[in-house]
Nucleic acid binder design. Structure first.
Length: 707
DNA sequence: ATAGGGTTAG
């Protein structure tokens, strides 16, 4: 009997052991299956089979529905649909419904989906709250930028006599940072000191961040220095503080301090530098690039920040090549990458890459995204593709004042002032309130088309109806408007009445008007002021000599040339870019080095022959041509835009439009020549010079010979 | 059971 019972218990023991093993195996394999399923569900590659997998996934949940399975699923941060299903199953189960762990994990998961109100609902329904409930609720609000709500929960927590801990304080401090509320931040700091939690790493980091965000950089640094332990986040918080306050050099000093401590920068360091990516020194850009290169783990944000730094510091070529490098590394660009890179495409007139980015947007379903669409619209506008820009504009579901302004200045720069004015009216109809920059764009559109009365009307509308105080840009537009329309005297009296000191652009507009309408007296005044304001700018000397030449005052032309030489003023060399199959070809005046140079000059000779039949007289030898053409050797006298155009004619199919980007203004000779070439070669030629587009078609230019 | 630093336009 005893033996039998022993045997029985031994068998039972064995059986129970076997059962345990089986159960463990079952749970483990379920974990594995659920994990894999989640992986598949969250991976983009498998989007196509998600629906069929989800059915399978749901069946799994039903079969092994337990607290443990729920936790596993919740820890994976499911999407809102799965979350809702799981939640409804938990609610109807009387054991699971009251489980605090599940309630907390549910709150966390809902907050990750942006559903703070559901998180709050669970929080309110949980009768036996503890500190963790409060911590998670505060964090839910903070992660969804609801800082005010976070602080009010913190208040409730204190009034219920719960003691905030080392999980609570970092979140509360982040809420203070988010609200820029130094007052509460200081109170929280006091409370931290009272309970002696100031030596905690996370709390210290949050304090550095809070003081930094509130602009108290000395206090931030003091906290940093007094921390018993620091990690990379502590330093990053300090970097972010300086960066957010616009103290770029100080932010970089911290990065260098990290270097000297042999502390590696991480992706967060790069991200912290982002607020001040604009207009820093070349040296700083190079240092940040070296940081970027040395970083062991680059993430998407690091690439995005580096690209943005290049774009914002007028290094579009570097931005583009970094982007190509990023693609090679297999890093997928997102909306931010593309929105940062599009302005670079615009600067370079790199339409090929711009169109490729457009396809990225379509394929990645990145629309609607206002910022991205605005950037795309502006890229097309800067590449001279007015129709494509308009297409982007028309397809936008939402437009802001930036969208309207971009589209208006696109019309303005192309000489379609009437379209710009019409769009301005449409903008007002749509209820969009124009701001100061919107008025700059409509005013400059008026001046480019010679719409004198409309320009006056908008200037009055801006000041009287919208109460916008005109800035120097508006005055420059008005001077340009009067000047182009031949009202040079009025332009000058406008300059004299300006409430601020006129700048280079204002006097430059006046000088240009004097050249067109041959106003020697005012022209001399303007030139004199310009030589004081910008003594090294060759363009104004050229303009002045043009005026003398037009008046037949050759001796003065020579004097200007002499003065330039004596002062060592060198002209910025004229450069023309043309894109062919995604590659940008750059031409200089008289370029001999291009592989196709021989063919280009031969074709140009043929063209010049045909142009002469239509009445073209080359002006390279005449004094009206700009002064820096000193060398009489004929090839050197040929401006870069002509070479770029002939190159494009030789290398693209008949009828393809040609797009050229120039760094300077087009000269009179080239302008006349390009008009004839557009007729002879039957090509639309779009030239972007430093301040507008010339759209040549069938012998006529969109600027109406007025630029 | 819970935590800190962070990106895009005229």
């Amino acid at each position: 009997m005893i033996a039998a019972s022993n045997l029985g218990s031994a068998v039972l023991e064995k059986l129970s052991f076997l059962l345990k093993v089986l159960l463990c195996w079952y749970i483990l394999s379920m974990k594995a299956i659920i994990f894999c399923t989640r992986q598949i569900l969250t991976s983009n590659k498998f989007r196509g089979i998600v629906s069929s997998t989800r059915i399978h996934f749901d069946r799994l949940k039903v079969e092994v529905f337990s607290k443990e399975v729920c936790e596993i699923i919740l820890d994976q941060y499911p999407g809102i649909k799965t979350l809702n299903k799981l939640h409804s199953k938990i609610v109807v189960n009387e054991h699971l419904r009251i489980d605090p762990t599940l309630a907390i994990k549910l709150m966390r998961a809902y907050s990750a989906c942006g559903e703070t109100s559901v998180a709050r609902y669970i929080f309110d329904r949980s009768l036996e709250k503890n500190v963790v409930f409060f911590n998670v609720m505060i964090r839910s609000y903070v992660n969804n930028n609801l800082y005010f709500e976070a602080l009010s929960i913190f208040q409730v927590m204190l009034s219920c006599a719960f003691n905030p801990d080392h999980y609570t304080f970092p979140c509360v401090l982040k809420a203070c940072s988010g609200l820029d509320n130094l007052r509460v931040g200081l109170q929280v700091h006091d409370a931290i000191l009272k309970v002696g939690l100031d030596s905690n790493l996370f709390i210290g980091n949050a304090l550095v961040a809070m003081y930094g965000k509130c602009g108290c950089l000395r206090e931030a640094r003091k906290v940093l220095d007094q921390m018993p332990y620091r990690d990379v986040v502590s330093w990053n918080s300090m970097v972010a503080g300086y960066a957010q306050s616009g103290q770029f050099d100080d932010a970089l000093e911290i990065c260098k301090e990290m270097d000297s401590l042999n502390l590696n920068h991480d992706a967060g360091t790069m991200a912290s530098l982002s607020p001040v990516v604009c207009y820093t020194s070349l040296e700083n850009v190079q240092y940040i690039h070296s940081m970027f290169e040395r970083m062991a783990k680059k993430n998407l944000v690091s690439w995005n920040v580096m690209i943005a730094i290049y774009v914002n510091n007028s290094m579009p070529n570097e931005a583009v090549s970094l982007f190509l490098q990023m693609e090679e590394c297999g890093m997928k660009p997102d909306a931010v990458t593309i929105a940062s890179l599009l302005p670079a495409c615009g600067d370079l007139s790199a339409l090929f890459l711009g169109r490729r980015l457009h396809k990225y947007i379509e394929k990645g379903n990145l629309r609607p995204n206002l910022l991205l669409e605005n950037a795309l619209l502006d890229m097309y506008a800067k590449c001279g593709c007015l129709e494509e820009a308009r297409d982007v504009f028309d397809k936008m579901k939402l437009r802001d004042v930036v969208s309207w302004t971009s589209m208006m200045s696109a019309y303005g720069r192309s000489g379609q002032g009437y379209d710009a004015v019409a769009l301005f009216a449409k903008m007002l109809d749509s209820g969009q309130i124009p701001d100061s920059i919107a008025f700059v764009s409509v005013l400059s559109a008026c001046s480019h088309t010679g719409l004198l009365d409309q320009g006056r009307h908008y200037f009055r509308m801006m000041t009287e109806q919208y109460g916008i105080v005109p800035r120097i840009e508006h005055f420059a537009c008005m001077v340009d408007l009067f000047g182009r329309a031949g009202e040079v005297e009025e332009a000058y009296s406008f300059v004299k009445q300006m409430p601020m000191e006129p700048n280079e652009r204002v006097w430059g507009a006046l000088l240009s008007a004097c050249r067109v309408h041959l106003k020697m007296d005012i022209g001399l005044v303007a030139a004199d002021r310009l030589f004081q304001l910008a003594p090294k700018q060759s363009g104004y000397y050229v303009l002045l000599s043009n005026i003398y030449a037009k008046a037949g005052m050759w001796k003065d032309v020579m004097n200007v040339r002499y003065a330039m030489k004596k002062m060592g003023i060198k002209k910025v060399p004229g450069i023309s870019n043309v894109e062919l199959n995604g590659q940008v070809h750059t031409f200089l005046a008289g370029d001999q080095y291009h592989p196709q140079a021989k063919n280009i000059y031969e074709e140009l000779d043929v063209l010049v022959g045909k142009m002469k039949e239509l009445g073209y007289i080359p002006q390279t030898e005449s004094a009206l041509h700009d002064v820096e053409v000193e060398d009489k050797e004929c090839h050197l006298a040929i401006h870069s835009e002509k070479l770029a155009i002939v190159f494009a004619i030789l290398n693209t199919k008949q009828g393809t439009p040609i797009r050229i980007t120039k760094n300077l203004r087009v000269c009179g000779d080239c302008h006349f020549a390009i008009k004839l070439i557009s007729k002879i070669a039957s090509r639309d030629i779009i030239v972007r010079d430093c301040n507008r587009f010339h759209h040549f078609s069938n012998g006529i230019c969109s600027c109406g010979d007025y630029w």
